[in-house]
Amino acid sequence: MRPLPVGAHGLLIELDTADEVEALHAELLRRVADGTLPQVTEIVPAARTVLLDGLADPPGLIAELAGRHIPPLDASDRPSVEIPVRYDGPDLADVAALWGVTPDEVVRIHSGTAFHVAFCGFAPGFGYLTGLPEPLHVPRRATPRTRVPVGSLALAGPYTGVYPRSSPGGWQLIGTTDTVLWDPQREPAALLSPGTRVRFVPQDGPGPAAAHIQEAAR
C-alpha cells in the first residue's frame, strides 16, 4: 500500500492488484457505515488506486491505515445485478474472430462470466466491469464511432461496459440492453457502483426493461 499526496486534503493509495483495491474500498465503506472513518468527501476506487479527498488530516489516516489489517474481500457482501441483454451488437463477429470462436460461443462465454464493477467513470453510471480472462481482452476499434446508442454492451481491454447514454465511443459493441443504467430521478441513480456483481442474461427479441436487483444475503 503506497500512499501518494493529492493536494492538501487528498490521498491516492496505490495497490498492487485489483483485488487489493476492492478489499480496501470495501473496508473504507464499512468504516464510513460504522462511523469510524474520519470525515471524507470522496472515495474513488479505480484500476490500481483508491482516491480519498476532503480529508482533514491525510498523514494521520496514512499512519492509521498502515497499521491496520485489511481483510480480504467477501464477495457475498456486495450487491448483485442481472442485466438482460440481446447479443446483437455490430462488432459481435469481430470479437468472435479476435477470440477465435463462433458468435454463439461469445454469447455463451460472456453470459457465463461473473463480472464485477471495478470502478466508474467516463460518464455518470458507466461502470468498468472486470471478469474476462486476459486472453479475451480486445483492443478498442481503430476508429471510434461518433455515436454509440444508449444501452450498448461493449468490450475494450480488460473491461466490459454498458453505455448509460448515447455518446461517442471506441469500444467493441456486442449487444444491447433496455435496462436503465442511470436515472438521476431514481434512488440510487446508478444501477452499477464500484463492487457491484453483474451477470448478463441472454435474451431474444425485445425484453423486459428492468434488471433484477438482488441485495446480497447477509
Binding site: 470522496e42 482516491l51 479527498d53
Partner: peptide
C-alpha cells in the same frame, strides 16, 4: 496510467 481518481484542481 491505469485510470485513477482525479481531484478538483488537478
Amino acid at each position: 496510467l491505469p485510470s485513477e481518481g482525479m481531484p478538483l484542481g488537478a
